[in-house]
Design a protein around this nucleic acid. Structure first.
Lengths: 147, 147
DNA sequence: CTATAATAGTTAGTGAACTAACAATCAGCT
DNA sequence: AGCTGATTGTTAGTTCACTAACTATTATAG
């Protein structure tokens, strides 16, 4: 009976609450000079160090636009979390490499992220979660995946 | 088995895609001077005209902060979509009233919104949707509802 | 009845996302 | 070899969201 819910509205509400909640967490406070998304990006880079990750990859993994990636990475480089190294085989590409500082931050963060995820999943069954992620996937498909 | 999904990440991805998709829609183009969220707020005001809606209500309905509400409504007033009228019984409150211009826009938008919602729901069963919204509700609860 | 709490809204400054327009490189034709 | 078109990344300007600090009013506790 859907109770008059709009998908777009409900997603944006939860998205706001998650961002806020994350911003107020230990995780966020600890790394004072970084905010929200940086941690995710660093996490991805650290866990894919053998793969020559470039900006376009971040774009698709996080569903954000090129310009957003560009701006965020520029700042992350300035703050010493990554280096952007030109790739020989293709001068358009810049390989993203996490610095020692990023590795350390990642190490400190990983357990807290796990705890946070656990907190978010309280009282939600495995089945419900599976359906939840499947629906998100379908919504993405219905939008057109890459708009 | 969850496939290594993070709730926060998946929500933010879909949230981005939805915002983009909405921004590129007819709906958005039609009302050139408004963007995304304004339409939602106007919709809410139009459908609750008998209820003396104030800014604090918008805050909770859309899960956004006071300052955000304040800024958005200031702009909406400037562009002639709403009026903010002081309430007699409590000088802190300002009642939000949609203008004629807002009513007209709402009338034009309502069917398109319905179509968009239908598009988003393609290939998703009633049951899946119910679970989906229920999980969103639980996540909100797990965060603390009002942070 | 007054001092303190809580509520409602504003302002200033910032971050994360966007679009649109651009530059540079690469790939494919013909 | 030389256009043309697709890829990758940057820059400028905007929107929506946030926090923190503020004003102004209302409610409550001593």
């Amino acid at each position: 009976m859907q109770e008059n819910h709009y998908i777009g509205l409900e997603i944006s509400r939860v998205s706001n609450l998650l961002r806020r909640n994350f911003g107020q967490s230990d995780m966020h406070r600890e790394m004072t000079e970084t905010t929200g998304k940086y941690g995710w990006i660093i996490g991805y880079l650290v866990e894919h160090q053998d793969e020559a990750v470039c900006q376009k990859d971040i774009e698709s993994v996080f569903s954000i636009r090129r310009s957003t990636v560009s701006n965020m990475l520029k700042l992350m480089e300035k703050k010493g979390y990554i280096e952007r190294i030109s790739v020989d085989s293709d001068a358009r590409l810049k390989r993203l490499v996490p610095t020692q500082k990023a590795l350390e931050m990642h190490r400190r963060m990983v357990e807290k992220l796990r705890q946070r995820e656990q907190m978010l999943r309280q009282d939600i069954s495995e089945e419900e979660l599976n359906t939840f992620f499947a629906v998100l996937q379908k919504i993405r498909h219905n939008i057109g995946e890459e708009t």
